[in-house]
Structure formats: structure tokens, C-alpha cells
Simulated assay, not measured.
Amino acid sequence: MGIDTLTFSQTLEQAGFKRAQADAIASGMGKAAAELVTTADLNAAMDRMTIRLGGFMAAALAISTAVLGVLVSLN
């Protein structure tokens, strides 16, 4: 997610901030905005977790089936 720091700084100046103050605030906001997580980032992470969970469930089912097969063959 990006922020137009130049426009933001100009807006702050028009609101009465000194140029140095406006530039510093805009720069800080730009750096903070770079660290924000987007909806697309969250969706991608959820997709990866869903795939991992599916893999774990498939492995657990395979192990359970194998154990059940061994138990049935013992009787």
C-alpha cells in the first residue's frame, strides 16, 4: 500500500504546518504505510494455511487408515 507523500505534505502545508514539519510527517506516514498488510496479503496467507491444513489432514487420514489396517489384520 503506497501513500503519495508529496501530496500529503502539501496538504499539511496548506493546513498550516511548516514545510519541514509537513515533510517529516509525510515521510513518517509513508514509512508506516509501507508496513501495512493489505487484504490481498491476508488472502494469500489464508490460502497457504488452507493448503497446509489440507496436507496435515490428508497425512492424518493416511496414518489412521494404516493403523486401522494393522489392527484389523491382527484379529
Rank of each mutant, 00 (worst) to 15 (best):
M1T: 06
G2A: 02
G2R: 01
D4C: 13
T5F: 12
L6Y: 13
L6S: 13
L6A: 11
T7I: 10
T7W: 11
F8M: 07
F8I: 14
Q10H: 09
Q10R: 13
A15Q: 09
K18E: 04
K18R: 04
R19N: 03
A20G: 15
Q21E: 11
A22F: 06
A22E: 10
A24Y: 15
I25T: 15
A26N: 05
A26M: 03
A26G: 09
G28I: 01
G28Y: 14
G30R: 10
G30S: 15
A33R: 11
A33T: 14
A34R: 06
A34G: 04
V37F: 11
T38E: 01
T39W: 09
D41R: 00
L42I: 07
R48T: 10
I51Y: 13
I51C: 13
G54M: 01
G55S: 06
G55M: 04
F56A: 02
A58H: 05
A58N: 06
A59Y: 04
A60P: 08
L61Y: 07
A62Y: 02
A62Q: 01
T65N: 01
L68V: 03
G69P: 00
V72C: 02
V72D: 05
V72E: 01
V72Q: 02
L74T: 06
N75W: 04
N75H: 06
